[in-house]
């Protein structure tokens, strides 16, 4: 019960202090909308909104989670308020989950901004929303853990931002969002299969456009493996670098 109280209050504090701030709310809405409009204008009507939707959702989650988490944690480390959490009688695992949960929820909300926008133009009733939500949650969790991994390695806020981009942009181009994986150069294909976003996007593609490389079950399994691996790496690095 005591851990639950601490967990809930860390999450509530992060949501109030960071995610519910007006600049972040507006950024969370404007960013996915801008991407949607940009893609529509660029395609000049050749691509339908349904084809764009999986990519836009995946991008919104990825940017929504990683950018906020890496920066806020680095900021708390710099001001040493994170030390307050480390010396509190809650386990590092519970702390990690509480810290990433705010970013995950923020990413999930971001993902559905393009969906709301698309609902005005196309019929979305045929989509399996249950599996789509699972895919969005899995992308949000892996992205948040990646953000945390970046935060553990960065000492300054600007470093966290640079490291985030170092991960995010190659991932966007290699996960099959812009270029289908079968059209990627042979040398890049194995890298694509090592990225969690590839599997998340594949589920979204399957649910929204009906075309996917893997079965949803296989992609979910791989995403869960990524989550466990990233969670383990985050815990190991926090214990190694922050409780040195």
């Amino acid at each position: 019960m005591q851990t639950l109280i601490a967990f809930w209050n860390v999450l509530k504090k992060d949501i109030n202090n960071y995610y519910l701030k007006p600049p972040n709310i507006s950024w969370g809405i404007i960013f996915p909308l801008s991407w949607t409009l940009m893609q529509l204008i660029r395609s000049q009507g050749d691509i339908g909104i349904a084809e764009l939707l999986p990519g836009l959702m995946a991008m919104s989650v990825l940017f929504g989670t990683t950018s906020m988490l890496a920066v806020t944690i680095t900021f708390e480390r710099r001001s040493r308020s994170f030390d307050r959490l480390l010396v509190a009688p809650i386990s590092v695992s519970a702390l990690v989950i509480a810290k990433i949960l705010g970013a995950i929820l923020f990413g999930i909300v971001n993902a559905f901004v393009p969906v709301v926008f698309a609902a005005f133009f196309i019929d979305l009733r045929e989509i399996n929303w249950g599996l789509t939500l699972v895919a969005v949650i899995l992308i949000a969790v892996t992205s948040a853990l990646l953000g945390l991994l970046i935060a553990v390695s960065a000492k300054e806020v600007f470093e966290a931002q640079t490291f985030s981009n170092f991960f995010r942009f190659p991932m966007l181009f290699l996960c099959g969002l812009f270029i289908p994986i079968d059209k990627l150069p042979v040398i890049l294909k194995p890298i694509s299969f090592c990225l969690p976003l590839t599997y998340g996007t594949d589920i979204l593609n399957g649910m929204i456009t009906g075309s996917s490389i893997f079965t949803a079950t296989f992609s979910i399994f791989i995403m869960l493996v990524f989550i466990l691996l990233l969670f383990y790496l985050c815990l190991r690095n926090i214990n190694k670098k922050w409780i040195h």
Partner: peptide
């Protein structure tokens, strides 16, 4: 190392919550 954006009362309440109060 308390939280700059939070007021004094909320800062204390948050720290108490870390101990399960």
């Amino acid at each position: 190392n308390l939280y700059n954006e939070m007021n004094g009362f909320d800062n204390l309440c948050f720290c108490a919550s870390l101990y399960g109060m």
